[in-house]
């Protein structure tokens, strides 16, 4: 059985993460002053910091984290592989390539919109390629193979852009973006990403039963009334739209989709459906907390979010490795 305290504690954790996200930064703003600022009769500078800098950052942290968490849980369920994460489908790389092209051709400076728009276009092109390669088949293997092919292609494109960068600064700009960050994001970014992420979450989170049925294999699931083609279509669309939107504003942030379901699985009945929404909450909390850590950890250059999540991923897998070898 899924532990009863799981939901409330995850909700609480996400809420706490959001509060920390808004409350912590280079300027210390006490709670009463923050309240006054938000209510409209406080210091206008503090108000600007809270509403224009920290709030969108916290909202994006929650939304992107939720999307990556659900994406990981859904994909692990669909592929029946606990090592799957949204990046497996190549959508993250595709979106990143779009963004990198915007940076490479200097379009990102022309309008703030161009970079995320090109990133979403990159995700859509990746999705079309995935469909062309994986076809309408029902086997998860073809999807993994197609995903690896597309992902590698987009990765090669990114490398090419770095290789051909006209000067070190351009290459540095691309690298920095690729590391993933929520720094200096505004509500315009929120407005762009949130609809994509909401659509992605809805498409994926309704798939719990189909994913549960897949425990019995494809034939077993189909014989339980699951339309495998529709399941696959929703999954692909959900991840492409949602993760595409997330990468467009945050850069490629890895490992969240991979580790969140792992962290939660021991507290559930281990069915894929029991992981979907909790993974959203836990992903949201994890990414927002990681983003707080980025601000708190002293460093000369700002630490990038993708770097922190990558470091978080390692111990989780060490623990699994130890358990697998029965050393723990």
């Amino acid at each position: 059985m899924t532990a009863r305290w799981l939901w409330p504690s995850l909700l609480l954790l996400a809420l706490l993460a959001a509060l920390l996200g808004v409350g912590i930064g280079s300027t210390v703003i006490s709670l009463p002053r923050a309240w006054a600022a938000l209510a409209g009769h406080g210091d206008p500078i503090e108000r600007a910091i809270l509403v224009e800098l920290r709030l969108p950052r916290a909202v994006l942290g929650l939304a992107v984290g939720a999307m990556l968490g659900v994406g990981g849980a859904a994909l692990q369920g669909y592929l029946r592989n606990p090592l799957a994460e949204p990046a497996v489908l190549g959508v993250s790389n595709g979106a990143a390539l779009g963004a990198v092209l915007a940076l490479y051709f200097g379009l990102a400076d022309a309008s703030f919109l161009l970079l995320p728009a090109l990133a979403i276009a990159g995700a859509v092109v990746t999705l079309l390629l995935l469909f062309a390669l994986a076809g309408r088949g029902e086997s998860p293997l073809t999807l993994i193979l197609a995903g690896i092919a597309v992902s590698t292609l987009a990765g090669a494109g990114i490398s090419l852009a770095l290789n051909m960068a006209p000067n070190p600064f351009a290459a540095m700009e691309i690298m920095t973006w690729l590391l993933g960050s929520l720094e200096d994001r505004s509500f315009r970014h929120v407005a762009l990403a949130l609809p994509c992420i909401a659509a992605g979450l809805l498409l994926l989170a309704g798939q719990g039963r189909a994913l549960d049925a897949l425990t019995l294999g494809e034939d077993g699931a189909a014989a339980l009334g699951v339309n495998l083609r529709r399941t696959r279509l929703r999954l692909l669309l959900g991840i492409a739209i949602g993760v595409g939107g997330a990468v467009a504003v945050s850069g490629a942030i890895g490992f969240v989709g991979l580790i969140v379901p792992h962290l939660l699985r021991p507290f559930t009945d281990r069915s894929p459906s029991a992981l979907l929404w909790p993974s959203a909450l836990a992903g949201a909390a994890l990414l927002t907390l990681a983003d707080v850590a980025v601000r708190v950890i002293p460093s000369t250059n700002e630490l990038k979010l993708g770097v922190v999540t990558a470091f978080l991923g390692v111990p989780v897998f060490l623990v699994h490795l130890l358990r697998e070898r029965r050393l723990w």
Binding site: R80, L214, T215, L216, D219, G220, A223, L224, R270, S271
Partner: peptide
């Protein structure tokens, strides 16, 4: 539709495919 077939014919596939470590009760509930 798949659902209409599923309500009329139950199917026990060959082999013992089980991809996730569900409890017996949870599995039968599928």
């Amino acid at each position: 539709t798949r659902a209409e077939i599923a309500r009329r014919v139950a199917y026990l596939p060959q082999g013992q495919t089980l991809h996730w470590p569900l409890t017996v009760e949870r599995l039968v509930a599928l």
